[in-house]
Design a protein around this nucleic acid. Structure first.
Lengths: 349, 349
DNA sequence: AATTAGCACTCTCTATCGGAGAGTGCTAAT
DNA sequence: ATTAGCACTCTCCGATAGAGAGTGCTAATT
């Protein structure tokens, strides 16, 4: 409703900064004593009252300082916050650490999530989308026992997917090999989509069921096998969770399954930006009051996903955001290097 | 020092039972009021004093009831406790649940750990030893890119192992298939040990390096990929962890890596019994005061490991022990069924 | 008109106190 | 050997009071 005057904006910004830092409500006296604003506590209090009328600040009890509302945080993030730049030292440590395990995405992503979590003292999560464009390299059928057959698919990024099948009538290994050979001739080099269209276009294949099982298996997302989460322990040290009840509630909230869904839904709601900050209860998303998310997409499109930090609304957005963005970029770049390498020569295990 | 009189043993047993149930120190009046001991509180107090002199009970403060010492728990477990039998209903639910996912050990063990954790309200952990006797069913070599080749081994329990290789000179997929076929003829049905002795006995194979890589790959243990843990959340609801500090400490203690080592060391110290209960600080093991473990080995020897419950010393041993033992037996049996199945139709191919 | 000094008021936090309740240890009686 | 009786200890809980911090409002000041 009211545009913020410069001073009022400065006060809001200072309150948010200070509250984020200490988790203690901020008083008018404290702000007045800071050299930057050369005004008296009374003036600050007047501004407080206006900011509170605008719904940007609140106070938990009559006496005791101000804390930001959710809208206060949002205004701060959109207009006021200072993004803490990444210093050279951090950059070097990270790139050094990642270099050691940059063999494959499987090893890269868990490491990045650990680094991010320890940087920001909150939960870090990285999801990885099933890649529609992955090609099938080879199919294998292995007789495990009596009526159980194992289907193994190797994809072009080195991923191996398997599924137990029950095939009637019983096929021995020799027959299975024949089928596997037939399947390989038919399907090698195709993506899941191509295989599916193959299934649709004609119905006279033998093993039609099996082919469509393969198509599904290729893109199957193994819930939380493609999601890396770290930092629960450090996040729970926040003063927000100082009693058993809130701590257990937080642990439930931070379940990998729930967060995976949440993160993906936040980043796939049709909005443009590759980076988003969601603060507290947001009616569009089902995010709980008191929690915030800083999320960023990474790429390139052959291998996409979301990297995010999840924590209490009192989060150091100015510190978290550049780091999430930086790591998203780093993953993108490493992925790109990796796929270029694959085209040129390949990489070691 | 003193042998326990019958009555004293009964009192100890009642104190432990009651303290386990309620987490509240047990008073003399409470025990006297129980019909079973028809004695006065004063008599109970005298017995308390003797039990305390024997180091089996203690009291946290002058007024307020008695709680067991670690030695009290040990005596209880060794001599006094009543093992709560598994009721038919539990048995049915479990076997029903397991039936759905009994395809392979990979799916079986996580499910069992979840069931156990929810049964006992503590952390359940299952480790799985690399199986020296597993047989190789099939080898596959897949050209991923340039100079990277993926080695895929399928074992007789349905496990799939993979490893990236760099092979010079470059072999295209056709050549790789030929090699794979040769390897399969040579190695299919062999265990890692047999393959290794093959390697030793003769040196004139082509692909000798590759064969020994395969032998190693079969028995490779992927740390904590073979360990299943569940129940942290429910364990942390115990009154033992009612403040943030003890809760965080417990979370650190319950890390899967630490527990994996702990469990394995507890069960591989040369002692006979397949089932062990370790209570509190035990100088032989590095177990922390306040924590206990109920662990049991499972088998048969083709596929062994340990199933255990970890929790605060105030643990319902009489309830936990039979259930750990039962599930260990169940896993053993299911494993046996699985491998018998393999033997029966092994003749088929 | 904006700022500020002044002051009463509110609320939290901490310590202290006291009484109720629970449980014990000891002694003397049974 | 058991138990009744009783003084003693310690926890728990609520009430109370005072210090401290911070606010809201009013009136004075710039």
């Amino acid at each position: 409703m009211n545009t913020l005057t410069e001073r009022r904006a400065a006060i809001l910004s200072l309150v948010v900064d200070e509250y984020i830092r200490t988790a203690v409500p901020v008083s008018s006296k404290f702000l007045a004593d800071m050299s930057e604003l050369s005004v008296s506590p009374a003036t600050v209090r007047n501004e407080f009252a206006l900011l509170e009328a605008n719904g940007l600040l609140t106070h938990p009890h009559t006496s005791g300082g101000r804390i930001p509302t959710e809208n206060g945080y949002r205004t701060y993030v959109e207009q006021l916050m200072f993004e803490e730049p990444i210093v050279e030292e951090e950059r070097i440590t990270v790139e050094h650490q990642l270099h050691q395990a940059a063999g494959s995405v499987d090893e890269l992503l868990p490491l990045v999530s650990t680094i991010l979590a320890s940087w920001v003292g909150n939960v870090a999560i990285i999801t990885r989308r099933a890649e529609q464009k992955r090609e099938l390299l080879q199919v294998q059928l292995v007789d495990i026992s009596g009526d159980t057959t194992l289907l193994v698919c190797v994809l072009d990024d080195g991923t191996v997917k398997k599924k137990f099948l029950t095939i009637y009538p019983y096929l021995n290994q020799t027959l299975l090999n024949q089928h596997a050979n037939a399947l390989n001739e038919l399907l090698a080099g195709l993506t899941s989509l191509e295989i599916k269209s193959l299934v649709k276009s004609s119905t006279d294949f033998e093993l039609l069921d099996l082919i469509s099982v393969i198509a599904d298996l290729i893109v199957e997302e193994n819930m939380s096998e493609n999601t890396y989460l770290d930092g629960i322990e450090v996040a729970l040290q926040q003063p927000e969770f100082s009693d058993q009840e809130s701590m257990l509630e937080a642990m439930g909230y931070l379940s990998i399954y729930r967060l995976e869904r949440l993160i993906n839904s936040v980043m796939t709601d049709g909005r443009d930006p590759s980076t988003r900050i969601v603060i507290g209860r947001d009616d569009d998303e089902n995010i709980t009051t008191g929690w915030s998310i800083v999320a960023s997409k990474y790429g390139p499109d052959t291998n996409t996903g979301v990297i995010a930090v999840v924590g209490p609304t009192r989060m150091a957005y100015g510190y978290v955001l550049p780091r999430v963005r930086y790591l998203a970029g780093l993953i993108t770049q490493l992925n790109r290097d990796l796929s270029r390498k694959n085209i040129l020569d390949g990489s070691n295990d």
